[in-house]
Amino acid sequence: MAEAKAPHAAPSLPSSREDTCPRCGGGFHCGANDPGPCACSGLVLPPALQAELRAQYAGCLCVRCLAELARTTT
């Protein structure tokens, strides 16, 4: 069974929203509602890590943090 892709933001977020990563505090653009694929859609995170992140953080993390987490859990 394939690993799940990185979680996306809630569908109600506007595409122009600028966010602050709750993990590192850096600014980023959540592209979950953009016409093209979100930058995080190419990342693969294990389901257990996704569950942990959902429990720990209310919103999306920046691509840099998600990529770091993906590297350290594989």
Rank of each mutant, 00 (worst) to 15 (best):
M1S: 14
M1D: 11
M1Q: 08
M1K: 05
A2R: 00
A2W: 00
E3C: 07
E3H: 09
A4C: 03
K5I: 08
A6F: 02
A6T: 12
H8Y: 08
A9S: 15
A10Y: 10
S12F: 04
P14H: 03
S15E: 08
S16E: 05
S16N: 11
R17W: 00
D19Y: 02
T20R: 14
T20L: 11
P22M: 06
P22G: 12
R23T: 14
G25Q: 09
G25F: 08
G25M: 08
G27N: 11
F28W: 01
F28L: 03
G31Y: 01
N33E: 12
P35V: 01
P35C: 06
P37N: 13
C38M: 01
C40D: 02
G42V: 07
V44D: 03
V44Y: 02
V44R: 07
P46N: 08
P46G: 14
L49D: 02
Q50W: 01
Q50K: 13
A51F: 00
A55I: 01
Y57I: 07
Y57H: 15
C60N: 09
C60W: 00
L61C: 13
C62L: 04
V63N: 07
C65W: 03
L69V: 01
A70E: 10
R71E: 12
T72G: 10
T73L: 00
T73A: 12
T73D: 10
T74M: 05
T74A: 13
